[in-house]
Amino acid sequence: MNTFSCDTTLEARKPSILLVDDSADSLRLLQITLKLKGYNVTVAESGAEALMQITKSPPDLVILDVLMPDMDGYEVTQEIKRNSNIPFIPILLVTGSEKSNVVKGLDAGADEFIRKPVGKDELLARVRALLRLKHSMDEQLLLCQRREDFVTHLTHDLRTPLIAADQCLNLLQRGVFGDTLSAMKESLEHMAQSNQTLLSMVDTLLEVYQYEAGCKTLDFFVVDLWELCQQVVQELMTLAEIKQLTLQAVLAEGIETSAVRIRGDRLELRRLLTNLIGNAIRFTDTGSVKIRLNSTCKGVTIEVEDTGIGMNHAEQLHLFERFRQGKHQRRGNGLGLYLSRQIITAHQGIILVSSITGQGSIFTVYLPGQTACC
């Protein structure tokens, strides 16, 4: 993610424009026209020189001739757009040839296209439009940076007192400060559970934001999904036993454990399984929750099936949206399934749901990757 500062906006200073053309006469004419309007103008006589200047000091706008020796305007445009270290710069391609391909230029990443001879009024109008685009993009980046700082600091500031409260409640429950009255034990337990819920919500909020901001880093290694699934099931078994539910993970018939190994981020896949299985337990009062793992030459399939309350078609349509909760009265923050889909998308997979009200649900996750069956 680019992290260029946008504190100095285009409206507060003279915009800078880089002219790139191998024709000295064309450069001189454009330079005079733009300087008379108060723009800061620099020039480059080749694509290579332009790229060096842009890397060193990115301008607010590049006006680029298409037909140049060694590196044409299309190639320069592609190089600019390909370099993630360069901030957003609008590009205006200029050509004197009828054979120049507008579609090719736009596909390369150019934002506008203009033909020679360039009319003064048309040129200035396009420059103004592209600089407005630049200003808008810079403002959006600045807002994203501020939002990222806000969310990061907010979650940190929230977690600190919640962790302290959690530790204090734990000490009280253990009687470190003296015997706890029987009448207080149930209240302390509810307080501890509520505090854990808040901590989980804060952590989930931060994870969701990192995905949305594009700053989430995943570490891909070979992950044994069968082993991981067994671990998650063991961790959640107590919750299922409290509700007298059957909780089990099974492999599809004829599938070996080696066939459900894929490349992925183990921590995120663990979070995914915990979300899906935990949800199934939460929304199931009687019956069972079953996790089935299968393998094909295209990847691995994970099915989480429950005999819970289910949901209607309208609820299913919006199930994976952020802060979307069903019409049930069960505890949840509306972020778990949204985050799950973010994790699956980051692994190039998909998630589907099939459900009938009162009969349960099946969440099916497809994760691509070469498996043993191939």
Results as ranks from 00 to 15, higher is better:
residue 1 M to A: 06
residue 2 N to R: 15
residue 3 T to R: 13
residue 5 S to D: 15
residue 18 L to H: 10
residue 18 L to Q: 08
residue 22 D to F: 07
residue 23 S to G: 11
residue 24 A to R: 12
residue 25 D to V: 03
residue 25 D to F: 05
residue 26 S to E: 09
residue 26 S to R: 04
residue 28 R to W: 01
residue 32 I to R: 14
residue 32 I to H: 14
residue 34 L to S: 05
residue 35 K to Y: 08
residue 38 G to M: 02
residue 40 N to D: 14
residue 42 T to N: 02
residue 47 G to I: 03
residue 50 A to N: 03
residue 55 T to Y: 04
residue 57 S to H: 11
residue 60 D to K: 05
residue 61 L to C: 10
residue 61 L to S: 12
residue 68 M to S: 08
residue 71 M to Q: 10
residue 74 Y to T: 13
residue 76 V to D: 14
residue 76 V to K: 02
residue 78 Q to D: 04
residue 78 Q to V: 03
residue 81 K to D: 00
residue 86 I to K: 04
residue 88 F to Y: 08
residue 94 V to K: 13
residue 94 V to H: 11
residue 96 G to H: 05
residue 101 N to A: 14
residue 106 L to C: 08
residue 108 A to H: 07
residue 114 I to K: 03
residue 116 K to L: 11
residue 119 G to N: 07
residue 120 K to N: 12
residue 123 L to A: 13
residue 136 S to G: 13
residue 139 E to I: 04
residue 141 L to N: 13
residue 142 L to M: 14
residue 143 L to A: 12
residue 144 C to Q: 06
residue 146 R to H: 14
residue 147 R to T: 11
residue 148 E to M: 00
residue 152 T to I: 03
residue 152 T to R: 12
residue 152 T to F: 10
residue 158 L to H: 04
residue 159 R to M: 04
residue 163 I to K: 08
residue 165 A to N: 06
residue 165 A to K: 08
residue 169 L to R: 10
residue 171 L to E: 15
residue 173 Q to C: 04
residue 174 R to K: 14
residue 175 G to L: 15
residue 175 G to R: 15
residue 183 A to L: 08
residue 184 M to G: 00
residue 186 E to L: 07
residue 187 S to Q: 14
residue 189 E to N: 12
residue 197 T to S: 05
residue 198 L to T: 00
residue 202 V to R: 05
residue 203 D to G: 00
residue 205 L to G: 10
residue 205 L to C: 01
residue 206 L to W: 07
residue 210 Q to V: 10
residue 210 Q to W: 10
residue 211 Y to K: 03
residue 220 F to T: 13
residue 222 V to P: 13
residue 224 D to A: 12
residue 224 D to F: 07
residue 226 W to H: 00
residue 228 L to N: 04
residue 229 C to Q: 05
residue 233 V to N: 07
residue 233 V to H: 02
residue 233 V to W: 02
residue 240 A to L: 01
residue 242 I to K: 15
residue 247 L to H: 05
residue 249 A to E: 08
residue 249 A to Q: 04
residue 258 S to H: 15
residue 260 V to W: 02
residue 260 V to N: 03
residue 262 I to W: 09
residue 262 I to C: 02
residue 268 E to R: 00
residue 271 R to K: 04
residue 273 L to H: 02
residue 278 G to H: 06
residue 278 G to S: 03
residue 282 R to K: 15
residue 282 R to D: 11
residue 284 T to Y: 01
residue 284 T to H: 02
residue 286 T to L: 15
residue 287 G to P: 08
residue 290 K to V: 03
residue 291 I to C: 02
residue 291 I to T: 03
residue 293 L to Q: 04
residue 295 S to L: 09
residue 300 V to K: 02
residue 304 V to A: 01
residue 306 D to M: 10
residue 313 H to G: 07
residue 317 L to G: 12
residue 317 L to N: 06
residue 320 F to K: 05
residue 323 F to W: 12
residue 328 H to W: 01
residue 333 N to W: 04
residue 338 Y to K: 11
residue 339 L to D: 09
residue 345 T to W: 15
residue 345 T to I: 11
residue 345 T to L: 09
residue 348 Q to P: 08
residue 353 V to L: 02
residue 357 T to Q: 12
residue 360 G to S: 07
residue 361 S to N: 06
residue 362 I to M: 05
residue 365 V to M: 12
residue 371 T to G: 01
residue 371 T to F: 05
residue 374 C to I: 10
